[in-house]
């Protein structure tokens, strides 16, 4: 328990130190652009693929479980929209990203630690927290963009699977999509997406930055980072949902 509190304390000290001395703007700009490429652009493919197919599966399963003729078929579109916007796109894509982006961040910073590149930066007088972590946080502020794509492709995947599979008609699905739309649900989704983005950038950075040992420990740190990032996302999801939807 004491170790856990120590980790939390060190995590917040890391965030504080990150804001103490800023890297030169010209250098920072290039780092941010590189992080956007590494963290955001390179994730588009996997997010698109997963969202499209999971959207399809959600829609088919909803359609199959609504055998009662009294239930209108447009509910398939409604359920797909709600699932994708409220939970799948923001939360589950973030957990997938904890595996992809989180592991990448931990292993890249961890490798820099093992090969003394972080020491080299420190000896030069660079604020390593700001140089290594801050660009990742800024890059992750455009993470909601990925979630928008996930929402769209998930719903489109549901539409495609249902209409081509004969589970519902085009009109029913579109009617369902437009049924009882609450704009605040989008706000809720993006508020939690933004918080998840901060978790995705900082917890893996912490695990990479403070790792000790060699190549084997880099692998272990990536795994630990994935576990703790996922746990933090799930706890944050529950907290934000209780705060905003109840």
């Amino acid at each position: 328990m004491i170790k856990f509190i120590e980790h939390i304390g060190r995590y917040f000290i890391m965030l504080q130190k990150m804001l103490e001395k800023f890297t030169k703007f010209d250098v920072l700009r290039k780092l941010i652009l590189r992080e956007i490429d590494d963290l955001i652009i390179s994730s588009l493919g996997i997010v698109s693929l997963i969202s499209f197919f999971v959207g399809g599966v959600v829609a088919i399963q909803t359609a199959i479980n609504m055998e009662n003729p009294l239930l209108p078929r447009y509910l398939v579109g409604f359920a797909t929209r709600q699932t994708m916007i409220l939970e799948f796109a923001p939360t589950f894509i973030s957990i997938i990203m904890a595996g992809k982006v989180g592991s990448f961040i931990t292993s890249s910073i961890g490798t820099m630690r093992v090969t003394e590149q972080i020491d080299a930066l420190e000896v030069m007088g660079v604020n390593t927290y700001n140089y290594l972590i801050f660009p990742k946080i800024i890059a992750m502020t455009i993470y909601p963009f990925i979630i928008v794509i996930s929402m769209f492709l998930g719903i489109f995947g549901g539409y495609f699977a249902c209409v081509t599979g004969g589970f519902t008609t085009h009109t029913d699905f579109i009617d369902g999509l437009q049924l009882d739309f609450v704009p605040f649900h989008l706000n809720y989704a993006f508020i939690k997406t933004f918080l998840f983005a901060m978790i995705l950038a900082t917890i893996p950075s912490y695990h990479g930055f403070f790792m000790k040992g060699g190549a084997l420990e880099v692998g272990k740190a990536s795994t630990t980072s994935f576990v703790w990032t996922s746990v933090a996302i799930i706890i944050m999801n529950s907290f934000v949902t209780n705060l905003l939807l109840t």
Binding site: T111, T115, E116, Q117, D119, A120, V123, M124
Partner: peptide, 10 residues
């Protein structure tokens, strides 16, 4: 500083 493993940025 010259580090043992050179510590060049990959």
């Amino acid at each position: 500083m010259v580090f043992q493993g050179s510590a060049l940025f990959d």
